[in-house]
Design a protein around this nucleic acid. Structure first.
Lengths: 196, 196
DNA sequence: ACCTGAACACCGTTCAAGT
DNA sequence: ACCTGAACACCGTTCAAGT
């Protein structure tokens, strides 16, 4: 890459990160190019699709997620590993508003720039899930697709301003379905204040 | 309403139903007007916002939902009533792809044409939830906002083509979190085949 | 080798002008 | 009283022309 192209690329990415943080994953790409002081074509050459841009923005988070799964498998109980990783997963998908819809669409589309990252995420989750199931602590009838779906649903809920305040509680509720025997997961006991 | 206006209104609604069924709640309104053979302004006068159009399309379903809640309260066990109504609720929100996002946004926006319907839905659910909680069969720490959130999340999952095939199973999983003591809800037993 | 921005085909929304 | 569609300000995407 020519040094001027490299500079364009990096600046574009920095501006995109700002704009997407503010406006979400469906931000205007025209706006990104404009704010970066760059021609539209330059943006499209560096990032041929919205997914490609998002993938680059989330790259390091995705990598950290995979790494974290391996660490947790070695260091934590099957139960704690699954809960902790799931939480991180949701935070990662929630990094940019609206990103989760694109990720969900990508899991079934090998053409998408987000495909590999999402498959990796699903696989990491699958390992932790199987491990917890072997221990009898996670629901036996969950497939990795189900875990990915539940994580996606929680990330989507967090994206909705009306539900965001109850995000933690909703996580607990869904967790209790994944790990029915979880310590302190007695659903008859009030764990979080329930507003009217 | 003048009879020609009435005719326009009804034809517009019929065409809108078709288009929205095909393309989802974010279908082009221009396209609806075009296919109805009507000026854009005509559509906007009858339905000042996308929400207004959707509200009209879903009107009878919303009414049926409220009615059904009352029926179930009288005729079924607290547990069965909540499960059955929740299921209907999801089907209703899922009637048009993408409608759930607009509904979720409407719950906190009294200006939205969908606001009242969503509040009614939430209230109906709240009654059934409280009843089930009084019986000790539903999680005590769930607020009506949580139930609405979980219903929304399931409706959203159903909207995603990659998750739709596992919709029923995902409903069972989330149900087991809402009703931990539900008959046959033993999560250690395999209830639905889990594909690899 | 890389960049630009006009061109094209679309949106949603408003509102002057028509019947 | 109702209808129309041009006008405006936006999109995403492509690609000929420039440096």
């Amino acid at each position: 890459m020519r040094t001027d192209a490299q500079k364009n690329y990096e600046h574009l990415l920095a501006v995109a990160r700002e704009v997407v943080t503010e406006q979400g994953a469906h931000a205007s790409l025209r706006d990104v190019a404009r704010k970066a002081g760059v021609g539209l074509g330059t943006l499209y050459r560096h990032f041929p699709t919205r997914e490609a841009l998002l993938e680059t923005l989330l790259r390091s988070s995705f990598d950290a997620l995979t790494e974290r799964a391996a660490e947790l498998e070695a260091s934590s109980s099957p139960e704690e590993a699954l809960v902790s990783w799931t939480q991180r997963c949701i935070a990662c998908a929630h990094e940019y508003r609206g990103a989760i819809s694109l990720m969900v669409a990508a899991i079934d589309d090998p053409q998408s720039a987000l495909h590999d990252s999402c498959v990796a995420m699903k696989s990491s989750g699958a390992r932790l899930l199987v491990r917890a199931q072997a221990e009898g602590v996670a629901r036996a009838d969950l497939a990795s697709a189900d875990l990915f779906a539940l994580i996606s649903a929680l990330a989507w809920l967090n994206d909705q301003p009306s539900f965001a305040p109850r995000a933690e509680h909703l996580f607990d509720v869904v967790s209790s379905a994944i790990l029915p025997q979880r310590t302190g997961n007695d659903s008859r006991k009030r764990r979080t204040p329930a507003p009217r």
